[in-house]
């Protein structure tokens, strides 16, 4: 019969190596999934370039973070990358709008079949990928600063008196917080705002949405804004490694 404290130790061990990292990793995946679901759900467009758009946003964030670090801007205990986030979002929006104007608009005007869009997005994927590889390359990049741990295993052991330690990284908490905030904001946007409702209406019944005066070009651009939003989460991937 194991002691009660053994069970607690087991739970802590499990949390340290499985539960906490898994929640954090799951939240990262959820953010990417959120974006691509939104694109497919509203526009019925399987965007193969989504992942690389995320990478592009990440790259922008890293570059701006390095810039901030070099001129001595920091965000106290929080990572400087958080300050660079808006620039990453703007970068990703700019890239999407550029591809929309130069590539997708042509096929939209031609009313191409969905499968054509899928192939086209594969081309956009290769291009975006090449841009990112050319500028920053595929290797790990270090841009971490601020407080790394909220508590370390040793601190946890001393605090609880258990023999197993539990670490909680600030990145893990941030990832989860950002995910919850994004999901909440997205839910609010789609359920409560006029534009969000128009996007749902467009995916629900395209012809009737047109008859109600909902302009698909604007849906696309709003859509691009929102699909760029998850772009900044890629840096968590790089960051945690």
């Amino acid at each position: 019969m194991p002691e009660f404290v053994d069970i607690l130790n087991a739970i802590v061990l499990f949390s340290n190596f499985v539960l906490v990292p898994a929640i954090s990793y799951g939240a990262q995946l959820a953010l990417g999934a959120l974006g691509i679901t939104l694109v497919y759900g509203i526009l019925r467009f399987s965007n193969f370039a989504h992942g690389d758009l995320m990478a592009f946003g990440t790259m922008t964030v890293i570059l701006v973070t390095w810039g901030f670090q070099s001129i001595g801007i920091s965000f106290g205990p929080l990572p400087t990358a958080l300050l660079a986030l808006p620039f990453g979002i703007m970068g990703a929006i700019a890239l999407s709008l550029m591809f929309d104007k130069t590539v997708y608009k042509f096929y939209r005007a031609k009313k191409s079949a969905p499968v054509i869009f899928v192939i086209v997005s594969t081309g956009v994927m290769f291009m975006t990928n090449a841009i990112v590889r050319f500028i920053i390359g595929p290797s790990d990049q270090r841009f971490m600063d601020g407080t790394k741990f909220i508590f370390r295993p040793r601190e946890f052991k001393e605090f609880t008196g258990l023999s197993e330690g539990l670490a909680l990284k600030s990145t893990q908490v941030l990832t989860l917080t950002v995910t919850i905030m994004c999901v909440a904001a997205l839910f609010y946007f789609l359920q409560k705002t006029r534009t969000g409702k128009a996007m749902r209406a467009f995916s629900d019944n395209k012809d009737l949405a047109l008859l109600s005066g909902i302009n698909p070009d604007r849906v696309v651009s709003y859509h691009l804004d929102s699909c760029c939003r998850p772009s900044h989460h890629r840096w968590h991937f790089v960051w945690l490694r």
Partner: peptide
């Protein structure tokens, strides 16, 4: 204003949201 014969509502949206979409412009 036009009411099509079929597919004339937004099925996945509430009645009130349907009316709001009618007033979109």
């Amino acid at each position: 204003a036009f009411v099509p014969q079929t597919h004339n509502v937004f099925g996945g949206m509430t009645v009130e949201e349907n009316l709001e979409m009618g007033a979109f412009l």
